[in-house]
Structures are given as C-alpha cells and as structure tokens.
C-alpha cells in the first residue's frame, strides 16, 4: 500500500492503534478502579510498625513466592473465608517517591498465600523461629533463612525479644539470638494481614468450581468423619511438628502429653479454641480454633487424630460432646 510507504504515516497509525488499545484495556480501567473503590468500613489501616514491615517485605522480594489474593475458586478456600475484592486493595498507595504502589498480589505461589496469615499463624514466637530458619519448624520448607534479621547477644537486655532456637542453630555459642527491629516490624506486618469482615447484610461472592464430594452419602446412619491428619497438618503441625514432639524451648510436645491423653476435655478444647499461655518455658499459643473458625466436627477430628498418633492412647470423642464443651468455653472466653 502506498500509504504505508510513508514512515510517518505508518508509525503514526501503529502507535495510535497501540496507545488507543492501551487506554481502553489498561489505563481507563485502572483509573476507574482507583476512583471507585474504597476500603471496607471495618478495614484496619496498617500501623506505622506494620507499614515499616511491609517495606521490608517488599525490599526482600517476598512477593516472588507469596501471593496475597484469594481467588473466587474453591481451591483457594483454604487461604481465606471469602474471595478477595477490589475494596481489599483500595488502601494501597505508593510508599515513597522512589517506589510504585505495592498491592503484592503476586503471580507465583511457591510459598503459602498470605492474605489471611494474621489469622492463620498469629504467633510471634513461631514467626520469629520460622524467619530465623524455616526448616527449624517446617523441615520440608525451601523458604530462604533470614538470620541477618537477628542479632547475637551474649547477655540479652530486658526488652530484647529472644528467639528460642534449638542448640544446633547456636553453633555452640553461649548467648541468645534476639530479633532486630526489622524482624519485629516484618512480623507485625504479617500479623496485620487479615481478611476484613464484610459489613452486616452483605454476602460474599461465591467460590466457583466447587469440589465434587468423593463419597456421596451412601447411608445417612453415620456422620462422615473428617480427615484429622489433614487438619492437623494444615493448622497444628507448623508448631507441634509432624512427629507430635514440638520443639524444645518453643512449642510443647503432644506426644505423651497429659492434656492430650487425659480426661480434662474442657481444658483441651479451650486450648484449641482460645489458645494457651500457662507455661513460661514455651511460646504463647494463639486462639487457633477461633481464628480458623473450627466446627465441632473439625475439633473432634483433630482431637481423635492427636489421641491416636505417636503412641498416644486417649479416649475417642464424638462431635456431639465437643459441641457442648465448645459452647461452654465460648461463653467462658467472652466473660
């Protein structure tokens, strides 16, 4: 075509086409989203400490492996109670003049999604040990270790946050590792990552591609039992470990534990639902059950798994009796 033998016309046409399409599929939708979305009423803005932690999260490229998006598909249910929505990201602005906005949605999930990690794993003690070297608490993990976020001190001062490490990681040195300000800020950020509840009366989007039930209820005579091992792996194993022995100095052993094997079911359920801080030598356990929204079936499955593993011999429990105790400890916790 003669028209395209003129370089000005040719490149003007191609550039106009490209810029026009760019405006339609990128810039205009971006501006529209930026102007028409606002944070949910219950959203809690990041504290200054958490904001500093976010900067450390960005600087170390954590987004290369950790997403922060719960997609509206069934397989993402384990990362949050509802699919993510535009409002969840609306509070993100650029943090400095040198940097762009970081929504940190991510494109790779080599490590777990962090949208709701503040509810799922709120324990500061666990996070510190995990950050120092993830393989202390999760042997199969391939996450980098971050020992440079910790300082070694012969005699920690008061106010220093000491990390309880197994002896192998102290390399024979007398003294303790204490968390640096950066480590504490980073953990404050992780602890602040929680899905904001929707306002009353608004229902969340549905999860698509619902999983087909593998075992259709053949006879309704017996309630199907949940897989206690999977629940334990997902919610308990990070601290108490796959062998149930915990970590000396950080997380107590469940193997041969009097609470697991004994008859005080009320205390047992209370610890699962509301956490525990009675023993000085161990870290604080957070309210795992309440954070995760455990049902009586799930609690019963976990208790039955713990009572029948690692040489434990506890009495089997039914969801019905757990239900009563859960109602009771819930009331007690609210008082």
């Amino acid at each position: 075509m003669e028209f395209f033998d003129n370089h000005k016309k040719l490149f003007l046409v191609s550039a106009t086409l490209f810029i026009g399409l760019t405006c339609v599929v990128a810039i205009m939708p971006a501006i529209h989203n930026q102007q028409n979305n606002h944070p949910l009423p219950d959203a809690i803005p990041l504290s200054p400490e958490a904001l500093a932690g976010k900067a450390i999260f960005v600087a170390n490229g954590c987004v290369a492996c950790h997403t922060q998006q719960v997609r509206n598909v069934e397989m993402d249910k384990q990362w949050g109670t509802r699919p993510g929505m535009a409002a969840d990201y609306a509070a993100n602005h650029r943090m400095s003049v040198w940097q762009n906005t970081a929504t940190l949605m991510g494109t790779e999930r080599t490590g777990p999604d962090l949208t709701d990690v503040g509810n799922r794993q709120p324990s500061r003690d666990w996070n510190l040990v995990h950050l120092f070297n993830p393989r202390i608490v999760v042997p199969e993990s391939i996450m980098p270790a971050y020992p440079w976020l910790f300082n070694w001190k012969a005699a920690p001062a008061t106010g220093d946050v000491v990390v309880n490490l197994p002896a192998a990681y102290l390399q024979g040195k007398a003294g303790k590792y204490v968390a640096s300000t950066e480590a504490l800020q980073l953990i404050a950020y992780l602890q602040s990552l929680k899905q904001t509840p929707l306002p009353e009366g608004i229902t969340a989007q549905e999860f698509l591609y619902a999983r087909k039930q593998n075992q259709p209820a053949a006879g309704n005579s017996k309630d199907e039992e949940l897989d206690g091992k999977t629940l334990y792996t997902t919610s308990c194993q990070a601290c108490h470990q796959a062998n149930g022995e915990g970590l000396p100095g950080a997380f107590p052993s469940l193997k041969g534990s009097p609470i697991v094997n004994g008859d005080n079911l009320e205390l047992y359920v209370d610890i699962i639902m509301n956490g525990y801080d009675a023993r000085q030598e161990y870290g604080v356990m957070s309210a795992v059950g309440t954070n995760m929204g455990f049902t009586e079936k799930e609690v019963a499955a976990i208790i039955n798994y713990e009572r029948s593993s690692w040489g434990n011999h506890g009495k089997k429990v039914s969801p019905a009796e757990i239900k009563k105790i859960m109602d009771f400890v819930k009331l007690k916790a609210q008082q």
């Binding site: 490149f11 191609s14 550039a15 490209f18 810029i19 760019t22 599929v25 990128a26 810039i27 939708p29 971006a30 501006i31 989203n33 930026q34 979305n37 535009a86 990201y89 609306a90 509070a91 993100n92 602005h93 650029r94 762009n100 906005t101 970081a102 929504t103 949605m105």
Partner: peptide, 30 residues
Amino acid sequence: SAIIFTIVISLAAYIPYWQNGLGETIIQGY
C-alpha cells in the same frame, strides 16, 4: 514499532497517577 510501543509501555507502567489499589494490578498485568 517495538521501540515506540516499549516507550509507551514503560510510561504507562511508571507514571504514578493510575497506580493506586487495583489500578496497580491492572497496569501490572498489561
């Protein structure tokens, strides 16, 4: 054209006026 487009792409990606909230994600995908 590749050079023209890449300059346009870089401008769209680095100009901060449409990067808040999900705007950043839409631009990132683009």
